[in-house]
Simulated assay, not measured.
Amino acid sequence: MKMYEAILDILGKKGNATIPVICQEMSGHEQSFVSENDLVEPSYIKTLVSSNKELFLLKDDIVSIRPDKEPLLMTVVLHGYPGPEMRVRIDFKRNTFTYFEWHLDAKATEPLEVGTYGSVEDFKKKLYYLKLWEWRKDYQTEGIVVDGTSWSVKLKTKGRTYESRGLDSFPEHWKEFCQAVSVLVGKKFSC
């Protein structure tokens, strides 16, 4: 885990925090970044937060996640010909998700089995790496597509809403994104 990921983890659990609180939490973090008797220096945390203005706000030694980067709700839709259509709705505030799968043919798969599902918190950490806020609004291939894969992602944060969609064309980290959704819902999420 990188230092900024640990800070995101701390802020996710505690909300806004002062630099001394972050230092104290970092020193006692389960994946400690320092040896037993050392402490994380406030100046180091301040430099780290100041250099990562894309994710963090720093005002009067209080660190927070930028409102436009703090996820509240996400909806993902994936549909390939001849199906199925898969929908996932993730509520980051309630730490819950719903998964819906719809088949157009009579050869639908068996009902979902009770199994191991991922955690919304782990998925949220993955989002910071994937930087969905940098995705374009529209991804299209050249030419006519009659049996391709269509998709859409809508991410609502505290500060704004990001929407992306596409037809047979995908953002750079699409495979990692689908893998993260698959881990979350406990079922392969791709066409």
Score class of each variant (00 low, 15 high):
D122R: 08
I144P: 02
D147Q: 06
N52C: 14
K126Y: 05
G83D: 13
P111I: 01
I62V: 15
M74K: 03
I45S: 07
P20C: 04
K59S: 07
K59Y: 11
G166Y: 09
V145L: 05
Y117R: 07
T157E: 03
E101M: 11
G166S: 11
G28Y: 06
P67C: 02
A6L: 10
F33H: 02
I19G: 04
Q31I: 06
I10L: 10
K69G: 06
P84S: 15
L112M: 13
N95P: 00
V49T: 07
P82Y: 11
V77M: 10
L39T: 06
S169D: 15
V49S: 04
V88E: 04
G118R: 01
L155K: 00
L184P: 07
T149V: 14
E5K: 10
T116A: 13
V181L: 10
A106L: 15
I7G: 04
K125A: 14
Q179Y: 15
R66K: 14
E134S: 08
K156G: 02
V114I: 14
K53F: 15
H103K: 05
A108Q: 12
V181N: 06
Y81V: 15
V88D: 07
K2Q: 14
I65A: 01
S27Y: 03
S35N: 05
D147L: 00
D91V: 07
A6T: 08
I10G: 05
E5M: 13
S35Y: 06
P171L: 09
E101A: 05
G118W: 04
T98C: 07
I22G: 03
Q140I: 00
E176C: 06
S119C: 03
R89T: 15
W135T: 01
V63F: 06
S27N: 02
Y162S: 08
S152H: 01
E113M: 14
K156Y: 07
G28D: 04
T98K: 08
D91S: 13
D91E: 10
A180R: 00
S51Y: 11
L55I: 14
G159A: 07
Y162H: 08
W174S: 02
W135G: 03
E176W: 11
T18H: 00
S32C: 09
V49K: 00
V145W: 03
F56E: 04
S51K: 15
L78Y: 08
S150T: 10
E110D: 15
H103S: 12
E121W: 02
L132V: 11
I10W: 03
T96K: 15
G186W: 06
H79T: 12
L78M: 09
G118E: 10
R165S: 15
V146S: 08
L184S: 01
Y139Q: 01
W133S: 09
R66S: 09
N52R: 14
E54H: 10
S152G: 12
G118F: 11
Y99P: 02
T47I: 10
I90L: 04
P42Q: 01
